[in-house]
Amino acid sequence: MPKFIATLAGLLTSGALLYYFQNEIENNTSQIRSKLHKTKNQLEDSLPSQLKDSSVSDQNQLIHPSKRPNVRPQLPIPSITQTQNYINHRFIPTFKSSWNDQVANIANKFTSFDASESAKNAKSFIEDKWNKNK
């Protein structure tokens, strides 16, 4: 019965923590997206009127930077979908496996813990220290 209780406690704790962190990640991701969208809009609004009118032609030139005179080609910026793929396919599975290993180790220590033996060891240790101090 104690193994069942320890396993159940471990499952409930890990489930609650997993739900909490998943909710936090979703909230943080939505906040980041809204800040990016707001910043993009601010940058577009801050463009001079000449650039706003030619925004379509500039977008075509960004695709082919070699056609623009005296402009260095820009390095590609990794997209959000690449980051999401990395998180979903690499980071989260690694985190889950290490988390599950740690929860299993803790549950194993709880189930193999012998309170009476530990109490005897503590009692003998305290008695030894008490007798040395006298």
Rank of each mutant, 00 (worst) to 15 (best):
N28F: 09
P73V: 09
N41T: 10
V56M: 05
S112K: 12
F125I: 01
L11E: 06
S30L: 12
Q31M: 11
K67H: 06
I92W: 03
N23D: 14
E44C: 10
L51G: 00
N105L: 11
I106C: 00
D101G: 07
P65V: 01
I106H: 00
I126Y: 05
Q74W: 07
S79T: 14
Q59L: 05
E44M: 15
N88A: 12
F91S: 05
N41L: 13
P93D: 04
I126Q: 04
D58H: 11
S30D: 07
L11W: 06
A122F: 08
T29Y: 07
T13E: 06
E26T: 04
N108Q: 15
D45A: 05
I32W: 04
L12Y: 05
Q42C: 06
P93A: 07
K3H: 13
T83R: 06
S97E: 15
R33S: 03
L11I: 14
L51H: 07
T94H: 03
E127H: 05
S49E: 11
T81N: 07
L11N: 09
Q59Y: 09
K40E: 01
E24W: 04
Q102N: 15
T13R: 03
S118L: 12
Q50G: 01
F4W: 12
H64N: 09
I106D: 00
V103S: 00
F95A: 13
I126K: 08
A9I: 13
L17T: 11
T7Q: 00
N41F: 02
L8E: 06
L51K: 03
Q102A: 13
S66I: 07
P65Q: 02
D45S: 07
A107L: 01
D101I: 06
Q22M: 11
L8H: 12
L17I: 09
R90V: 11
L8A: 10
I5E: 11
N23L: 09
P76W: 01
K38D: 02
K120A: 10
S98G: 01
H64E: 08
Y86M: 04
I77K: 11
A115E: 08
K96H: 12
K52Q: 15
A115V: 13
L47R: 07
N105W: 04
D58R: 07
N133P: 00
T94Y: 03
D58I: 08
N85Q: 15
L8T: 09
D58P: 01
F113W: 14
P78L: 04
K35G: 02
N100F: 14
S34C: 04
S34W: 02
L62M: 15
S79W: 04
K38P: 00
Q84K: 13
I87F: 12
S116A: 11
I32M: 06
L47T: 03
Q42S: 12
A16K: 10
N100P: 00
H37W: 12
S98E: 14
L75I: 12
F21C: 07
F95T: 11
S98W: 10
E117V: 13
H89Q: 15
T39R: 10
N28R: 11
P76H: 03
S57P: 00
I5M: 01
P78T: 08
I80W: 01
Q61M: 06
K132D: 09
I106F: 02
S97C: 05
R68M: 10
K35V: 03
S116K: 09
K120Q: 14
K96G: 00
S46E: 05
T111W: 00
L18K: 08
N27S: 15
S46Q: 10
